[in-house]
């Protein structure tokens, strides 16, 4: 199936990817090529075939609903790209915040 420029722009928006206008047409061509190749899957009759989402036969395990770690706010915030703000600068593990651009006026 062929994808047009508008569809590619819509996908990019859904994926939160900034794609420059001049790249939309080449991308539409590439993605159309990939989807045309994928079309061969329609040759296979999959009626009544149960979809396989995981190859592990194991039933996903349950664990007790209790806290097993914590108190590591400094580690959680260590890579914050906008820097972090801590509740108590003398005890960074007491808690803190990621910083983001202002989103509400």
């Amino acid at each position: 199936m062929a994808l047009d420029k508008d569809t590619v722009a819509r996908i990019a928006r859904l994926a939160r990817l900034k794609v420059p206008d001049e790249d939309l047409a080449p991308l539409a061509g590439e993605l159309s090529g990939i989807f045309a190749w994928i079309e061969q899957l329609n040759e296979v009759d999959t009626r009544d075939v149960e979809p396989l989402s995981s190859v592990s036969d194991v039933t996903l395990p349950m664990r007790a609903d209790k806290v097993t770690d914590g108190g590591m706010a400094a580690k959680v915030l260590a890579n914050a790209p906008g820097g972090a703000v801590y509740i108590d600068s003398s005890d960074k593990n007491a808690g803190g915040f990621f910083t983001v651009p202002k989103v509400v006026e």
Binding site: L14, V44, S53
Partner: peptide, 26 residues
């Protein structure tokens, strides 16, 4: 990411993603 976003988007999930998982089962 764009291929994945497309095949999981509303209206295409069954045609692509579910189909691929069925073929994976085969």
């Amino acid at each position: 990411i764009m291929i994945g976003t497309y095949v999981l988007s509303a209206g295409y999930y069954d045609a692509y993603y579910k189909k691929a998982q069925q073929i994976r089962a085969l």
